[in-house]
């Protein structure tokens, strides 16, 4: 995987960090790599940190939506965290509101929510 994306396992959660110069092929690689990683590690949660991203366009937005769906099928709860205000406003303008994805303000908030949901 290119160094624009990093996947780290923290206990039973996979943390995905994305750098701002990500290309379309990096995103596609992430999509393939992440689902394999979920199965390999038996992760129960995935947290994708996009706070470094200035831009999320329709292509990247669509992949994010799919990532959440795929992880859900593999029994891992996915959170997209740290979206910048300007990115959120632009996505709304594009009509991409990611209704199927869980969103959180920060990595720690997402981790808290994953833990809370698992102990329920």
């Amino acid at each position: 995987m290119s160094n624009a994306v990093g996947i780290y396992a923290v206990e039973d959660v996979l943390l995905v960090s994305i750098k701002d110069d990500i290309t379309d092929s990096d995103v596609i690689e992430l999509q393939d790599g992440l689902s394999e990683e979920v199965v390999r590690t038996g992760a129960r949660g995935v947290v994708i940190d996009i706070s470094a991203l200035d831009i999320v366009d329709t292509f990247v937005g669509r992949i994010f939506a799919q990532l959440s769906g795929v992880a859900k099928l593999l029994d891992a709860e996915t959170y997209i965290v740290g979206m910048r205000p300007a990115v959120a406003m632009t996505l709304v303008e594009l009509g991409m509101t990611l209704p199927e994805s869980n969103m959180a303000l920060s990595v720690s908030q997402a981790l808290r929510r994953i833990r809370a949901n698992r102990t329920r």
Binding site: D21, D24, D54, I55, V56, D57, T58, F59, R84, P85, A86, V87, M89, T90, E93, L94
Partner: peptide, 29 residues
């Protein structure tokens, strides 16, 4: 990146930059 830099040089607000760079990304792709 090139368009981002142009906006940075103009000291544009984040929302102006993000909107336009996103549009650039769409048409470039």
């Amino acid at each position: 990146q090139a368009v981002s830099r142009a906006f940075d040089d103009l000291k544009a607000r984040a929302i102006r930059k993000t909107r336009f760079v996103t549009a650039v990304s769409e048409i470039a792709r």
